[in-house]
């Protein structure tokens, strides 16, 4: 018996109801999350912390901004596979973008980039977006005080 997530399972049935089903892209981001880790204090221009472990998920996100662009991004995530994969994809979408551009990334963009996620897990994709928004706010608030000209 192959797992429901196996690659050879080309014609993946549409599961509804309680059965969780993640596609290969989601599983890939769960197994090999992009940009996972932390930025050092000196690298960090903005930091966001959202979610609550007692409610099931939490995410920390760090950004490093150079000339208005997100040069480096890193995250750590506690939660279900959906939370980990959407966090990973969000950082992938945001990296290299201008801050103004990154602000416009929505949870739907994350879900679309992953090729879909089970209905019950859609709320997970909001966590990453909120963490990014929080990190950008943090950067905006600290700009000028910190090392804006430090590049």
């Amino acid at each position: 018996m192959g797992s429901v997530t196996s690659k050879e399972n080309a014609e993946q049935p549409e599961y509804s109801g309680p059965v969780l089903f993640y596609n290969d892209t989601v599983v890939d981001h769960f197994v090999n999350p992009r940009n996972v880790g932390e930025l050092t204090e000196s690298e960090t221009d903005g930091y966001g912390l959202v979610g609550d472990p007692s409610c099931g998920d939490q995410m920390k996100l760090w950004i490093s901004v150079r000339s208005g662009r997100i040069e480096k991004i890193a995250f750590k995530s506690y939660g279900c596979p959906g939370a980990i994969a959407t966090s990973s994809m969000l950082t992938d979408l945001a990296r290299g973008r201008s801050v103004e551009d990154a602000k416009r990334i929505t949870d739907d963009d994350v879900v679309e980039a992953l090729g879909g996620i089970p209905e019950r897990k859609k709320h997970c994709s909001l966590l990453g977006v909120m963490a990014l928004q929080a990190a950008i706010k943090d950067w905006e608030a600290g700009r000028g005080l910190k090392k804006e000209s430090g590049a």
């Binding site: 797992s3 997530t5 309680p18 993640y22 769960f30 197994v31 279900c80 089970p118």
Partner: peptide
């Protein structure tokens, strides 16, 4: 500090079938 469903998926990818609890409550 880790989520049960993530462990179960991790195990599944290694060929081990386990669960977070009752199969009737999966998801």
């Amino acid at each position: 500090s880790v989520d049960g469903e993530s462990i179960v998926l991790g195990l599944d990818l290694e060929g081990v079938c386990a669960s977070t609890g009752s199969a009737c409550s999966t998801g």
